[in-house]
Simulated scan of single mutants.
Amino acid sequence: MSAPWTEWDHIVKLDPDKTLVDGESYADVCKTGTDAIEIGGTTGMTEEKMTEVIEPCAAAGREHDVPVYIEPSHPGTVVHADGLSGYLVPTVFNAGDIAWLTGVHKEWARMDAEIDWDRTHTEAYIVLNPDSSVAEYTQANCDLDADEVAAYATVAERMFGQRIVYLEYSGTFGDPDVVTAASDALDDATLFYGGGIGDYDAAREMGGRADTVIVGDLVHDEGCDAVRETVRGAKEAGQEPVEPDR
């Protein structure tokens, strides 16, 4: 049985430290057509903030048949709630601080006796925006060329058995050639791409190179109509343009 994310073209990532656009709800996010929702953030995360988003979002996900996952940045952000589909746990392969490879994960395993291992999966992050909070937080080495990124992707899949490789440009539109190099390096792992997806064209561009595009800031800054356009772009990636009727 294939993993659910192998069928995803688009994910919305919700940051509990930010709000939705006025008048919009988690049900509205679910109705954008996105394939899944991740909940998590790099800084400012607390169990209370996570719970305030997870519970209503999971309820909306159940109602609209959209899977909802936690992406925990550290053990204190893990919430066990009804309706969650599972946990997508980052492990940063180019981190300078090795805590983000296994250290915080060890602490979660040590502190939490309720981990549902059947629904807990890892994402092999390669962080590529040196100005981002996640790069600073993990002390990531972002000075990588396409060959080095492809090598990290290969190591993640071949040596560490990772089923998701995640290129994280975090708010900045990435280098398409780097994304293509990572994609070409993978055989079976699913390639996630996140960073700077703000419209149809950006989603279609990266959706044609990665398996799945991830939208984060857009849902908080511009709202669900803008997200809906990125869903359309991701799902139409790789398709031939349709000639207009005459």
Rank of each mutant, 00 (worst) to 15 (best):
N94K: 11
E107I: 05
I115G: 09
G103Q: 04
L101T: 09
D97E: 10
A99L: 01
V92S: 05
T102N: 03
G96Q: 05
E114P: 00
W117R: 14
A99S: 10
D118T: 11
D97F: 07
V89E: 01
W117E: 09
D112L: 11
G103M: 04
H105I: 13
V104G: 10
A99I: 00
L88F: 05
A99W: 01
A95W: 04
F93L: 15
V92G: 07
D97W: 03
E114F: 03
T102Y: 04
A113R: 06
A109Q: 08
D118G: 13
I115W: 03
A95R: 06
V104K: 14
T102I: 10
L101Y: 10
V92C: 07
L88C: 03
H105F: 08
A99M: 03
R110M: 06
I98T: 13
D97P: 03
G96A: 06
W108Q: 09
G103T: 02
R110Q: 09
W108Y: 14
K106R: 14
W117L: 14
D116I: 03
G96K: 09
D118Q: 13
E107L: 12
D112N: 14
T91S: 15
D118K: 15
W117D: 04
E107Q: 15
A109L: 10
I115V: 15
L88Q: 03
I98H: 08
I98C: 06
I115Q: 14
V89K: 06
T91M: 12
D118C: 05
E107K: 14
T102F: 03
V92T: 08
R110N: 08
I98N: 10
I115N: 14
V104W: 14
H105Y: 11
G103L: 02
G96E: 00
W108A: 13
L88G: 02
A109C: 04
T102G: 01
D112Y: 10
R110F: 07
E114Y: 04
D112R: 15
L101Q: 10
H105W: 05
E114V: 00
V89R: 11
W108E: 02
G103S: 03
L101C: 09
A113L: 00
A109I: 01
L101V: 12
H105V: 11
D118V: 04
I98E: 08
A99R: 14
R110K: 13
D116H: 10
N94A: 09
T102A: 12
A113G: 06
N94F: 05
L101M: 13
L101E: 01
N94Y: 07
F93G: 12
I115Y: 03
V89H: 11
H105K: 15
M111N: 08
